[in-house]
Nucleic acid binder design. Sequence first.
DNA 1: CCTTTGAATAGATGATCGTCTAAACAGGAT
DNA 2: ATCCTGTTTAGACGATCATCTATTCAAAGG
Lengths: 121, 121
Amino acid sequence: MQIPLMQVPTPPGSAVVAPCCALAVTPVDEETAQRIAPMFKALGDPVRLQLAARIAAAGRTCVCDLTPHFDLSGPTISHHLKVLREAGLIDCERKGTWVYYWIRPESLATLAALLQADPVA
Amino acid sequence: MQIPLMQVPTPPGSAVVAPCCALAVTPVDEETAQRIAPMFKALGDPVRLQLAARIAAAGRTCVCDLTPHFDLSGPTISHHLKVLREAGLIDCERKGTWVYYWIRPESLATLAALLQADPVA
DNA sequence: CCTTTGAATAGATGATCGTCTAAACAGGAT
DNA sequence: ATCCTGTTTAGACGATCATCTATTCAAAGG
């Protein structure tokens, strides 16, 4: 029943007490889940994850600087950018012929806060 | 072009310099993206996000303690648990008639590390 | 052995997704 | 005005997804 991933085997019989993350502390009701899940979903595609990473790395990025790195059509890249944008992870602005995208760090922070090991511990 | 989410408006013209997160520092090549994206994808469904949160909160949780909280059939819950498990986010063990699930904190930590604000800054 | 209970698997169905091509749109430059 | 280039939108198509019911499996108890 094990699927290899990293190191710690996580003793099956251990009585887990310490909270592993905010997920374990902050109650995630249905409303919260429906607000947060689309962000994770947006990052749940390899192309979009790479797009987000490139935009995060480059700061303020023209679509024309993203497209060449993928073996995909322009419209497909545009579609993925739209998904990221509608999830609230990025935003954009047209400047003449070109459109520039940038990361919304608050959104990433929201997700990170849910996942990271309990900062209080 | 704005989609409301949190507070910071993120000035469009600002020359972003400081890395917002590990995404901006760690290069996310295609291979990495294909390894990580399924984990985000698994959390990208409201039901699975709530399942993960409940398991994280409860520590070591019987399926029978999860199912009643959702308006879904047993097999559907079972399916979602399988998705989370195959993504490496949870693991399970049968104990007699019951099956218990627990969180794999290393996996959550991997994702958190990618998203959280640059810890070096 | 048979029954019972908890959970997973099999298979079906309608919805959503990722991708493409073709067309439309936005702005500069001739 | 007209063209050219970068980007988005529209629409189509096959693949994957979330859910269900029916069935099977696992393990305990008579």
